[in-house]
């Protein structure tokens, strides 16, 4: 089957700044592809290039197996876009907004009525259909933004950070909605800088930074690529320097940091990490409080690939 999206070697410059540096991307039919990268890594730029809103100096973009140009209205008909910024008409009600944007794709009024009803139900805005955007809360506004992009039943949907500044309830509704769209047959490109979301819904993940693709694969594949296999956190009231040195000397331990009463140890993948660490602390006669152990996250993947944290800001409360 041909890829729905096939971007290769895309180069986009804003003056001296290289926003996309030989960026390539393939999206297979029916998958949710997560494009994960910190703010400013070029996610929006990549989407705008695919949509032919931006010029680019190099590279090719094929959608549905065909070269994309601004005049390919047949291809545009099959694409739905949920932009990063909420883009709706302030003077129109929620329903009118959805219908208005849908009319850019579907001219038949009766057909549109069905589609708009479905879109309203899909995002759960039925009760708010007569509200103007000004009266909608941030989360509802984001849902309206989504409804405006998907009402015409596109085959390929590009979501650009749809959950930024959204309350947890709306966020979960949005994420499960995206999965439902996939289940109904749509192909989804989902950009985010929240790794948890991407890990939760995406079948494949592309990690990018500075306009370059750093790694791609399923979440598990990505985690297997890095040396970190397990992260252990232990509450320790007091840790002698000798004990810390002993920990660092353990065979699978990559690093051990003691800070504010919490000891953080990251280890390579191994069956015995937790036992070894606790044994070492026991030998040093250190009293141990609560203990956590978790597999690596995408953040660890990003950290290991780039040497810096993926998160450049603390996510909202509740996530």
């Amino acid at each position: 089957m041909t890829d729905v999206v096939s971007v290769s070697n895309l180069v986009k410059r804003y003056g001296d700044l290289v926003a996309l540096d030989h960026f390539s991307l393939r999206v297979a039919p029916g998958e949710i592809l997560g494009l994960l990268g910190p703010n400013g890594s070029g996610k929006t730029t990549a989407i705008n290039c695919m949509l032919q809103l931006l010029t680019y100096s190099q590279g090719s973009i094929e959608l549905f197996g065909q070269p994309m140009t601004p005049a390919r209205y047949d291809l545009k008909r099959k694409i739905g876009v949920v932009p990063q910024q909420v883009a709706v008409f302030d003077e129109l009600t929620a329903r009118e907004n959805i219908d208005c944007f849908c009319s850019l794709y579907v001219s038949d009024r009766a057909e549109r009525r069905v589609l708009v009803d479905a879109a309203l139900d899909f995002v759960g805005l039925r009760d708010f259909q007569r509200f103007r955007p000004r009266k909608l809360s941030g989360g509802l506004l984001r849902r309206l933004n989504i409804a405006c992009g998907i009402a015409h039943r596109p085959e390929l949907i590009l979501f650009d950070e749809p959950t930024v500044a959204v309350d947890p309830q709306s966020r979960n509704a949005i994420l499960s909605g995206i999965q439902r769209l996939r289940d109904e047959g749509a192909t989804v490109v989902y950009t985010s800088h929240y790794m948890e979301e991407v890990e939760q819904i995406c079948s494949r993940i592309v990690i990018m930074d500075h306009g370059r693709v750093l790694a791609q694969g399923t979440a598990d594949e990505l985690k297997r690529m890095i040396s970190t296999g397990e992260k252990i956190e232990i509450e320790v009231a007091d840790l002698p320097a000798a004990a810390l040195a002993a920990l660092r000397a353990l065979p699978h331990v990559i690093s051990a940091v003691y800070e504010a009463g919490v000891l953080r140890v990251s280890c390579e993948a191994s069956q015995r990490n937790l036992m070894d660490v606790l044994d070492a602390l026991g030998r040093a006669d250190v009293a141990v409080g609560r203990v956590w152990s978790e597999p690596p996250t995408l953040n660890d993947v990003f950290l290991e690939i780039t040497g810096r944290e993926l998160r450049d800001e603390t996510p909202e409360a509740g996530r």
């Binding site: 032919q52 809103l53 209205y73 694409i79 876009v81 932009p83 910024q85 009319s103 850019l104």
Partner: peptide
Amino acid sequence: ERLKANLSPVGARCQVSSMQPARQ
């Protein structure tokens, strides 16, 4: 202002749609 991507966010929406610019 609502017609083109360089003029407004809704303009981008209109511009990526399948309705031809002349009709818009």
